[in-house]
């Protein structure tokens, strides 16, 4: 997604006194990686007998009546959905249905888009992502993102990974951290002998894995993937999908994809978005991936996943 121009970043990012408190609370919660779920966080799927992939999992994101508009244009009608820990959640749907808008709203990447306005609430581990005391930089440090087009920095492979940890003061054992991130992204064996080479000399698929390595190097809690394989060849796509499975036990992954097979192959939960009568993006159906693809409740979902629409 390209954003027309270098728009101003209008929301403050200054560390107000309240910011520290909030981010520290967030940190305490998220460092408890093992799945300790409190009853209140337990997934509730009223229409089901508990066989859902979400059952018993902690809620990472709780979107409550979230709607987005850019200036006068409405991009996303109010949606309510929960995203669960250590699952891969896919957002699918035709172009312009608001799935990327929702994804970028989760870590406040839309803040810099002129006219961006979000209503409703996005709770991240119970904290309002758009709360007045929340530090946007801290949000993004917890919630990493990989973009549609591989966007490595014009630096060396090593410096691409090491840049963000250095910024955050994670300078101890930097070499080990870089190696770990590259191993996590299944890239280590291919680049270990040329870490000082420019990252832009890598192939597209390698660049995208480098971007994933870059994201995991600062040990976020969530990975947001915006059509990460759409610009890649099938083999690289497969590598990314295997990577997602390998990362799943440690991260909560949300992926936007145009590729329905990819959603069916990789995701535990799938949300189908479409355009309503006013051409505003809206959430049609959100359930376990298997149900979305095999037994969709809504005819629009069925038409889309069977290829009769779009």
């Amino acid at each position: 997604m390209t954003l027309g121009d270098g728009g101003p970043i209008t929301l403050g990012e200054g560390a107000s006194s309240g910011t520290e408190v909030v981010s520290r609370r967030v940190r305490i919660q998220t460092t408890a990686r093992p799945q300790t779920t409190t009853p209140s966080q337990r997934a509730t799927s009223p229409d089901r007998d508990g066989a859902s992939a979400a059952t018993g999992r902690a809620v990472v994101f709780d979107a409550r009546g979230v709607s987005v508009s850019y200036g006068a244009k409405r991009a996303l009608a109010p949606i309510t959905m929960k995203i669960y820990r250590n699952l891969i959640t896919a957002l699918i749907g035709p172009s312009g249905c608001g799935k990327t808008t929702l994804l970028r709203s989760l870590n406040r990447m839309n803040d810099s888009v002129p006219g961006f306005k979000l209503e409703g609430q996005i709770l991240y581990h119970g904290h309002d992502v758009y709360g007045s005391a929340v530090n946007r930089v801290e949000v993004r440090r917890r919630i990493g993102m990989v973009f549609q087009k591989p966007n490595p920095f014009p630096k060396s492979i090593y410096d691409n990974i090491a840049w963000a940890p250095r910024n955050l003061g994670l300078k101890q054992d930097l070499d080990e951290r870089v190696e770990r991130a590259l191993r996590d992204a299944a890239l280590w064996d291919e680049v270990k002998d040329r870490l000082r080479d420019p990252a832009l000399g890598l192939s597209g698929g390698q660049q995208q894995r480098l971007c994933i390595a870059r994201a995991v190097a600062i040990e976020p809690d969530v990975l947001l993937l915006d059509e990460p394989a759409s610009a890649l060849d099938p083999i690289s796509t497969l590598a990314i999908e295997e990577l997602m499975q390998a990362l799943k036990p440690r991260y909560t992954i949300v992926i936007v994809t145009h590729n329905m097979q990819q959603a069916a192959r990789t995701a535990d939960r799938t949300a189908f978005f479409s355009l309503d009568d006013n051409r505003v993006g809206t959430l049609i159906e959100y359930d376990d991936t298997e149900k979305i693809f095999m037994r969709p409740a809504d005819t629009r979902t069925r038409d889309y996943v069977t290829g009769r629409f779009g």
């Binding site: 954003l3 970043i9 870590n107 993004r140 993102m145 973009f147 014009p154 840049w163």
Partner: peptide, 25 residues
């Protein structure tokens, strides 16, 4: 500065970089 690709700046911002870190880095 306006010609620096938006994707690069977004990529840096998504890594928890402050505005000044994006500019400097």
């Amino acid at each position: 500065f306006l010609s620096v690709p938006r994707e690069l700046q977004d990529g840096a911002a998504a890594l928890g970089a402050t505005r000044w870190e994006v500019i400097r880095g």
